[in-house]
């Protein structure tokens, strides 16, 4: 038996997985997939700060909206910091990402421990943002995450043509006068939105996998981008729903881990199928 609340959470996580697969496909093809890891870790101080702020103002400290807003703000700050770090060219992007994600995560961890010394329930449940806990999501939480995720998928559908041109050949896209900076900014915004929407269910440590694993699996199978997006969305939705279901059945299981393991099972199958296809051709 699946209760109403469980069903809503399941659908919310499936929508999240779908959007992550679609957005993650472009992130992968643009060579920006690891930015999702920086965003996820950079979100923690934002979540903690937002919860403290809301509690100080006498609000409901566990309301999801302000927490996600805080996550988006520091996630974006993390991206800005990364850009500053790597601007000179002397610090390569991978090292920059390592610096940013560890710095923000450390900051968030310190914030968490400070919050736990304070009276009241401000910090309760915040640790769920680290590894994800879909089972604690309310119906409203799931609807918020799902709506955000579907909005992202809609934006990708609108920007499909110019994003594809940019991912394939940046030089040509720029020579044609496509708004490359704006497109890259839109892609970053989409990644930020999906990462933030995915925090409550998947957690900040593994949210990168939700963007990368379904997209990588689809990349192994698809010969054209529309097929890759469809497959990545499907794989992501399956992984999201499977993870959420596991989390409601086994409440001690971190949802993020369950989602990622489901995604990796799909990836394994795709790798096998892709190898067979490659050999047959």
């Amino acid at each position: 038996m699946i209760g109403h609340n469980t069903l809503v959470v399941l659908l919310g996580c499936a929508a999240l997985g779908l959007a992550a697969g679609v957005v993650g496909s472009f992130a992968l093809l643009r060579g920006r997939a690891l930015l999702a890891d920086a965003i996820g870790h950079a979100a923690l101080p934002g979540v903690v700060a937002a919860s403290l702020l809301v509690a100080a103002l006498g609000g409901e400290a566990r309301a999801l909206g302000p927490l996600l807003l805080g996550a988006a703000v520091t996630g974006w700050l993390g991206l800005l910091a990364l850009r500053r770090l790597t601007a000179s060219g002397r610090i390569p992007p991978d090292a920059g990402i390592a610096v940013v994600l560890s710095a923000f995560y450390a900051l968030g961890t310190v914030g968490l421990s400070v919050a736990q010394t304070l009276p009241g329930a401000a910090q309760a449940g915040l640790t769920h943002f680290i590894l994800g806990q879909a089972a604690t999501m309310t119906e409203a939480d799931a609807l918020l995450a799902g709506a955000l995720a579907l909005g992202c998928a809609g934006v990708v559908a609108l920007l499909f043509q110019p994003l594809r041109a940019l991912c394939f050949d940046e030089g040509f896209a720029r020579a044609q006068g496509l708004p490359v900076r704006a497109l890259d900014l839109a892609l970053l915004g989409l990644m930020l939105a999906v990462c933030v929407a995915g925090l409550p269910a998947v957690g900040l440590i593994l949210v990168v996998a939700l963007l990368v694993v379904p997209a990588a699996a689809a990349r192994l199978l698809a010969a054209r981008l529309p097929a890759m997006l469809a497959l990545a969305g499907l794989f992501g939705a399956l992984a999201g729903a499977a993870g959420a279901l596991a989390s409601t059945r086994l409440p001690d299981l971190p949802t993020g881990a369950a989602v990622v393991l489901a995604g990796l099972a799909i990836f394994g199958a795709a790798a096998l199928a892709g190898r067979r296809r490659g050999r047959g051709a």
Partner: peptide, 13 residues
């Protein structure tokens, strides 16, 4: 993941 036609069609964007 693109066909030859997909790539050439980018010129018409």
């Amino acid at each position: 993941p693109a066909s030859a036609l997909d790539v050439v069609a980018m010129a018409r964007l």
